[in-house]
Structures are given as C-alpha cells and as structure tokens.
C-alpha cells in the first residue's frame, strides 16, 4: 500500500530530534571529550589519548566491579524470571481476584528507588528492622553491614521484591491473550499440565518474556540507587557495582578523565550484552 509522499512530516520529528540531541548526543560527546583529556580542575585540559582507557581496562578494581555486576544480573535473572512466570501462571484469569492481584503486583513498582533502599535498609537492621531482628532472634547471625554474604543476600532480596512484579505483569499480559479454545483443545487432547505449559503457555509468552529478560538485564546491570542506599557499596567493596564505583571515582575523587573513560566502557558493555541477548533470543525465535 502506498501513501502520498509528504516531506512536511519531518517538521513533526524535528523537536524530538533536537531534544534527543540535547539530552543524549551532546552529553555523550562531552563524556567522550573528557575521556581523552586530563585536567587538574582549573579548567585546563591536556590531551591524554587512550591512557585512561588503558588504565580502566587494566585496573583490578574495574574488573572486580564488572564481575560483581555480571554475577548480580545472573542471579536476579535466575530468580526473577522463573518466579515471575510461576506467579503469573497462578494468578486468577477472571473474577474479582484479578484486580486485587494486579494492584498487589504493581505496588512495589510504584515505589521510588531510594525509598525501596531506605525501606530495606531499615527492614534489615538487626536492632530495629523487622527482618534483621527476626533473624537475630531466631539465632541466625545476620548483619548486612559487616558480612559481605548477608549484604549480597539483602541486595538480591530487595531487587527480587522490587522487580519480580514487572516479569509477572508482562507474563500475565501474554497469558491472558491466549484464547480459551487452546486450553479446551489441550484438555480434549489429553495434554498434561507440563505439556500445556511447554506447548501453549510458554510459546505464547515468549515474546513478552524476551522483553522482560532484556529489561531486567539492563536494569540490573545499571543498578545504583538501592545498593548505594542500603550498603553504600560495602562492606569493603563487596557490593560496589560498576555504577557505584563510577560515581565514587567521578564525584568522590574528581577523576573526570578515568571516570569518563570508564562510563564509556560501561556503556559499550551494556550495549554489547543487550545486543547479544536480543540476537540470541530473536534467532531462536526465527528458527521455530
């Protein structure tokens, strides 16, 4: 079907292009600019070439933070995706329960990041927090301030609590779009519960599930506010993710050059990993 050719439409796009230029392209170019220069803070810049990149990539600190990030993303994906699918499968499809469930599920998503952090920071304290205190009175030696493992547990629990709902809601949307006839046909064909999941529900959920995985991966890889509020990156550096490290470097130490180089590397890693995720999943889709 052909449409009349009309160049006027470009004027409608122009404001958006300008906005994107100001909010994304120009800051990005500034960062690129910083990343190849050195400064001592008095607005004098010296050409540094790729020195900062070499420094960032070879630093132990960067590699550790990157590994932490990858581990964190892997863990929360491994928990949130199956859990989200499981909850979505068990949510009611019709009746008054639907809206109750949907509101309950949406609640954590409505809370601002830093508030989530604060809630869990208090929740986990073993003097006044419900979780920390309960665990302590049960005899569990739990202290997220001093024990790296406890800190990880707390940050992961917090993320699962905060974001599983997103996976649930996306999967639920996929599930309710399946016509009743599919379930009826499966009953007639004598399909088991597993076969219904494997051959009807999973294929119909696949597209939304892909979006959920992608969103959760990118978000978790860029996580900053919540762990910063709860643990501040500690104890030691045990919960210092890339973004936290980046902020420390840029605004704590005012190492603008290395911080700029690092943020660009960080940006490229996210871009690359997201692309890999996307291609792998869509290819898989196309083969079927």
């Amino acid at each position: 079907m052909d449409k009349p050719w009309n160049n006027k439409a470009w004027w409608l796009v122009a404001p958006m292009l300008a906005l994107v230029a100001f909010s994304a392209v120009i800051p990005l170019m500034t960062v690129v600019n910083y990343s190849v220069q050195d400064t001592f803070g008095n607005n004098q810049f010296f050409w540094a070439g790729l020195e900062w990149y070499e420094q960032v990539l070879s630093s132990e600190r960067f590699r550790e933070a990157l590994l932490r990030n990858l581990l964190f993303s892997a863990i929360i994906l491994a928990i949130e995706v199956p859990l989200g699918v499981f909850i979505a499968l068990n949510m009611p499809k019709k009746g008054p329960g639907v809206s109750v469930c949907l509101v309950l599920m949406a609640l954590p998503l409505l809370i601002p990041w830093n508030v989530v952090g604060t809630i869990w920071q208090v929740f986990g304290r073993n003097d006044i927090g419900l979780l920390g205190w309960s665990l302590k009175s049960l005899g569990v030696d739990y202290n997220y301030v001093s024990d790296p493992l406890d800190a990880w547990g707390t940050v992961i629990a917090m993320d699962v609590w905060h974001w599983t709902s997103l996976v649930v809601l996306l999967c639920y949307a996929g599930l309710v779009s399946i016509p009743d006839a599919y379930y009826q046909a499966a009953k007639i064909d004598g399909a088991s519960r597993w076969a219904v999941f494997r051959h009807i529900q999973l294929p119909k959920m696949k597209r939304v599930l892909m979006i959920a995985v992608l969103l959760r991966f990118m978000d978790s890889f860029m996580i900053y506010t919540e762990p910063f509020v709860v643990t501040g990156g500690g104890p030691g550096n045990s919960t210092t993710f890339l973004s936290i490290d980046l902020v420390k470097m840029a605004t704590g130490q005012f190492d603008l050059g290395p911080a700029a180089a690092m943020s660009l590397v960080y940006f490229l890693i996210i871009l690359l990993l997201s692309w890999v995720f996307y291609t792998v999943m869509t290819n898989h889709d196309a083969q079927r």
Partner: peptide, 21 residues
C-alpha cells in the same frame, strides 16, 4: 468425569495449533 477422561475429540471454531510443533 473430566474432559480428558471422557475420551472424545473436539474441533473448535478457530484453529488451535501447537506453535512449537
């Protein structure tokens, strides 16, 4: 008895196929 145990076949108005197979 449940549908499964009645041993009947039924064809619906709109095609129901298993996408993955």
């Amino acid at each position: 008895l449940a549908t499964r145990d009645r041993n009947i076949a039924q064809v619906f108005q709109f095609p129901v196929i298993y996408d993955t197979m």
